[in-house]
């Protein structure tokens, strides 16, 4: 298939059809911020942090879900985009309880890294405390909804890579939260294989291994994407045989 060439932040980029703007951008050293996107699982375009401007379209589009096209002219870092990203991150901090000093993921948290990148150091708004409680019923893992950013990486990794379909989302709006097996305590979810993929993909400290304390959560973030790319290579080899 012939490639396409496009411009991303004034860099000429060659890309293959079907690639996303976000994937193409990485190759010219442009890292578009994002939380819900993750290699190896499907794209949902829900966190809206990776919004970019595409010349000729009326409103910004999520880079993770926008396929490259010939002669596309993309800007990922305009003043408006920067300002909006900052507000979006502030919203994330405001809706949860993200207190780095007492978090297992301190120092290895994607939200923390993004906040530093985008320049968010405080929340403008104090919400009432969450009514959701921690789930510590699983023998090895725990889930703290107040640190969850609802990126649903875990939901997708569990369904698409492990094939267990343990995780889902329940409740709407601010009440939205993860549930195991349609609302059981995690420890009683029969579909869970305890594979830990959900924990490995979590960008914050919402999912953690028990027994880790402040700053000790160090996950194999690439576990899922490594698995899927290996599977792809294997099935390609099968086809050649």
């Amino acid at each position: 298939m012939p490639g396409v060439s496009l411009r991303i932040d004034d860099n000429e980029v060659d890309a293959s059809p079907g690639e996303s703007v976000m994937q193409a951008a990485v190759r010219v050293g442009v890292k578009v911020p994002g939380l819900c996107q993750m290699d190896g699982v499907s794209v949902v375009g829900a966190c809206r942090l990776c919004m970019v401007e595409v010349a000729g379209t009326p409103r910004p589009r999520p880079a993770c879900a926008t396929p490259v096209a010939e002669a596309m002219d993309v800007h990922t870092d305009t003043e408006q985009l920067r300002e909006h990203r900052k507000v979006l991150l502030e919203m994330l901090f405001a809706e949860g309880q993200h207190v780095c000093a007492v978090c297992v993921a301190n120092g290895a948290c994607e939200l923390q890294t993004l906040a530093a990148q985008v320049g968010v150091d405080h929340a403008n708004f104090t919400p009432p405390p969450s009514r959701l409680t921690m789930d510590l019923s699983h023998p090895r893992f725990g889930y703290d909804p107040s640190r969850c950013v609802l990126c649903t990486r875990c939901v997708r990794a569990c369904a698409e890579v492990e094939g267990a379909f343990t995780w889902g989302v329940a409740g709407r709006g601010r009440e939205a939260h993860l549930v195991a097996d349609l609302g059981r305590p995690w420890g009683e979810a029969e579909s869970c294989t305890s594979c830990g993929k959900c924990v490995s993909v979590c960008p914050t400290g919402a999912m953690f291994e028990k027994g880790t304390s402040v700053g000790q959560r160090r996950v194999k973030r690439a576990l899922v994407s490594t698995l899927t790319s290996r599977r792809e290579r294997e099935s390609a080899r099968e086809v050649l045989k």
Binding site: R48, L88, A176
Partner: peptide, 10 residues
């Protein structure tokens, strides 16, 4: 709001 995307939810 269904809660799926951040800007609408929060």
């Amino acid at each position: 709001s269904c809660g799926k995307c951040l800007p609408c939810r929060a």
